[in-house]
Amino acid sequence: MSEKLLEIKNLHVMYHTDLEDVYAVNGVNLSMKTGETLGLVGETGAGKTTLALSILRLLPDRTGRITEGEILYNGENLLEKDKHTMATIRGKEISMIFQDPMTALNPTQTVGQQIYEALMLHNNANLSKKELWERVDSCLEMVGIPAARRKEYPHQFSGGMKQRVVIAIALCCEPKLLLADEPTTALDVTIQAQVLMMMKNLRDRLGTSMILITHDLGVVAQVCDNVGVMYAGEVIEYGTLQDIFKSDKHHPYTEGLFGSIPKLDEETERLAPIDGLMPDPTQKIVGCSFAPRCPYAMDRCHTEKPGSCNDNGHQIKCFRYTDETAMEVSS
């Protein structure tokens, strides 16, 4: 058994439609240990959700395609598993919380049935029906919903409650790895905090490893051990929470990301957003994907892809750090 719970090597994912090819994930390398919580941040369209869906092999059947790379879970490549093996992994070993609780639940089944299904599908201990329903009750209580409400349908729940049900479904089989795809984005702020606290507590109680996808840096700071910053389908910076929030060295995009958060202790008229837009994902990128928007861009950034500089695990994909001389020139 490998010490690493999950290792993603050079993953490329594209969406192929009749109109165009979209390069969603372009060479992602990531790894995480058991018990770790990894935050994935980045703006909309950076490929975070695609990455999570790739791990569970839930990309849209006809369009989504993993063109290159490996996803190793406990040292085994998930991309080589057949349908049936994958089904035993989904929900039991790795499960996922989806972004929008409003649509993630089946409107024609009671929430109890939907939790029951997950338990029943992975009922390796051969529990009886009655025992399974008792588990359903305890799962609902675990996420703070009275067990009596298991007979109700999703439309009878509020958004925050629905997300709790989604979390209960994801956690009821006590998975080793939880992929949480913007679990709080669709909720209002007060509920966000509640749900987040609950997830954090459950993670600690069940010892689940977690990949938390978000674009909220505040959430990352509260929950994560390590952080990967994604941009245009690449992880352009990776490090511990300390590295990302406290270190001086940053990828120019991360600098921009932090720069665009308003600060309470400074009087500013306007926010400082990053100029420009993300590159068109239908075009293959030559050179650094951030170069067109980068204030430090050099000639070579437009033609060459920067490698990853590794400073005690803090990885930055930028020529400013891979090449010390270049950094001096630019500063």
Binding site: H84, A87, R90, K92, F98, A104, E117, L121, H122
Partner: peptide, 13 residues
């Protein structure tokens, strides 16, 4: 739809 994806993520064939 999303709930079909949820069902797949639960491990349903």
């Amino acid at each position: 739809s999303d709930y079909v994806r949820t069902a797949k993520a639960k491990g349903a064939l």
